[in-house]
Amino acid sequence: MTTDDRRTDGGAEASGEEFEEYADLGATTENAMEIAETSMDRVRGLVPDETLADRIRQKSVHATGDPEFQHLVRFTGETADEPVVAGARAVLEERPIVTDITMVKAGITGRGHDCRVEKAIGNGGELARRTGMTRTAASVLNLDRRGVYDDAIAAVGNAPTAALALADCIEDGTRPAVVVATPVGFVKAAESRRRLRAVAERHGVPAITNVGRRGGSGLAAGLTNELVHVASDVRDGEVDLP
Rank of each mutant, 00 (worst) to 15 (best):
T2N: 11
T3H: 14
D4S: 09
D9H: 14
G11T: 08
G11V: 06
E17K: 05
E18C: 10
E18Q: 15
F19N: 13
E20L: 12
E20C: 07
E21N: 11
A23E: 14
L25D: 10
G26T: 15
G26D: 09
E30S: 05
E34T: 09
E34S: 11
A36P: 10
E37Q: 10
T38H: 11
T38R: 14
T38Y: 13
S39P: 03
S39A: 15
M40Y: 12
R44P: 06
G45S: 13
P48Y: 03
P48H: 04
P48V: 08
E50S: 15
E50C: 15
A53W: 02
D54I: 06
K59N: 03
A63P: 06
T64R: 09
G65C: 05
G65Q: 10
D66T: 09
F69T: 04
F69Y: 11
Q70K: 04
Q70W: 01
Q70S: 02
T76L: 04
G77H: 03
E78W: 08
T79M: 15
D81Y: 14
A90M: 11
I97F: 06
T99A: 06
D100V: 02
V104L: 13
K105D: 13
A106M: 14
G107M: 06
R111V: 13
R111E: 13
C115E: 09
R116W: 03
V117C: 05
V117F: 08
K119A: 10
G124Y: 00
G124T: 01
A128P: 06
G132L: 13
M133I: 08
R135M: 04
R135D: 03
S139P: 10
V140N: 03
L141F: 05
N142W: 01
L143S: 12
L143Q: 15
R145W: 00
R146I: 09
R146F: 10
G147M: 06
G147R: 02
V148K: 11
Y149K: 09
D150Q: 02
I153D: 05
I153T: 12
A155S: 15
A155F: 05
V156T: 08
G157N: 12
N158T: 15
N158K: 05
A159S: 13
A162V: 00
C169Y: 01
I170W: 00
E171S: 02
T174C: 08
V178R: 05
P183L: 08
F186Q: 11
F186E: 10
K188V: 02
A189D: 01
A190T: 04
A190S: 07
A190R: 04
R195L: 14
V199T: 09
A200C: 12
R202T: 15
G204W: 01
P206R: 06
P206N: 11
A207Y: 03
T209A: 02
V211D: 07
G212H: 01
G212Y: 04
R213T: 07
R213G: 05
G216F: 09
L219M: 11
A221M: 07
A221T: 09
A221I: 04
L223H: 03
T224Q: 09
V228R: 07
H229A: 10
S232G: 10
D233R: 12
D233C: 12
V234C: 09
E238G: 06
V239G: 04
V239N: 01
D240I: 10
L241D: 08
P242G: 11
P242D: 11
P242L: 11
